[in-house]
Amino acid sequence: MTKQELVQKMQDAGAFVPGKKVKLHFGDEGAIMLDGQNSQVTEDDGAADTTLKVSWADWEAMAAGQLDGMTAFMTGKLKVEGDMSNAMQLQGVLAKLR
């Protein structure tokens, strides 16, 4: 799946935390903004309440259910900056993508 396809899939699934901006940052692959304030998913790299930093490969493993989000966090594959509660809420949101 490409990043553009992921953006569309997340938009269709309503994959955002209401009222919050959560950014997924994939390093060299760029970013995806889950904008719960405007109910949209974009490839913006602006300010966010919470930023999740993860490699694209690890993200794909998480999305496929092969890598648990908490395990990724504990092993340093997933880094969270900002409001941790938004990251916790995002787990339920991401389950919609499977």
Rank of each mutant, 00 (worst) to 15 (best):
N86F: 02
G30Q: 09
K96M: 11
A63H: 13
F73Q: 07
S55C: 09
A31F: 03
G76H: 10
G14C: 04
G82R: 01
L34Y: 00
G92L: 04
V54Y: 03
F73C: 07
M10A: 14
G82V: 01
M84I: 15
V22L: 15
K77W: 06
D58A: 11
D58S: 12
N86W: 00
G30V: 06
A15S: 14
W56I: 08
N38C: 03
D44A: 13
K79T: 14
D49S: 00
L78I: 08
W56H: 10
E60P: 04
Q40E: 15
M74Y: 07
A72R: 09
S85Q: 14
A63E: 15
M33V: 04
M88D: 04
T2C: 07
L67A: 10
W59L: 12
A47G: 09
G69H: 07
W59T: 05
V80A: 04
D83A: 10
V93Y: 02
F16D: 02
L78G: 04
A64M: 12
G69A: 14
G92P: 02
H25S: 15
A47S: 13
V22Y: 03
G82S: 08
K3N: 05
E29F: 13
V80P: 01
K20G: 00
Q4K: 13
D68V: 06
T71W: 06
L90D: 06
K77N: 09
D45S: 13
E60H: 09
G19M: 01
G65V: 09
D44V: 01
L97R: 09
A48D: 04
N38E: 14
E43M: 14
I32H: 02
H25T: 08
M74I: 06
V54W: 04
V7W: 04
D12A: 13
A95K: 15
Q40P: 01
K21E: 02
E5C: 05
T75M: 14
M33E: 10
Q40F: 01
G36C: 05
M1C: 08
E81V: 08
D35F: 07
T42F: 03
A64P: 03
V54R: 03
A64E: 15
D12K: 13
K3I: 15
D28H: 10
Q8Y: 07
K9G: 06
G76I: 08
A48C: 06
Q66G: 10
T42L: 03
G46S: 14
F26N: 08
D49M: 00
V80H: 01
G65R: 08
N38L: 11
D28K: 14
H25W: 12
G65T: 11
V54C: 13
G30N: 11
Q37W: 02
V22C: 08
M74A: 15
Q91N: 12
G76S: 10
D49V: 00
M1N: 12
M70Y: 12
E5N: 14
D49H: 01
S55N: 07
F73H: 08
G36W: 00
T51I: 10
Q37M: 13
N38S: 12
G46I: 09
G36R: 00
L90E: 06
A15L: 11
D44W: 02
Q37V: 13
V17W: 00
D68H: 08
A61I: 02
G76P: 03
M1F: 13
Q8I: 09
N86T: 05
S39C: 09
D35T: 06
D35Y: 07
W56G: 07
G46C: 07
Q4W: 05
E60A: 14
V80E: 03
A48Q: 05
T50R: 00
M74W: 07
L67S: 09
V17A: 00
K9A: 12
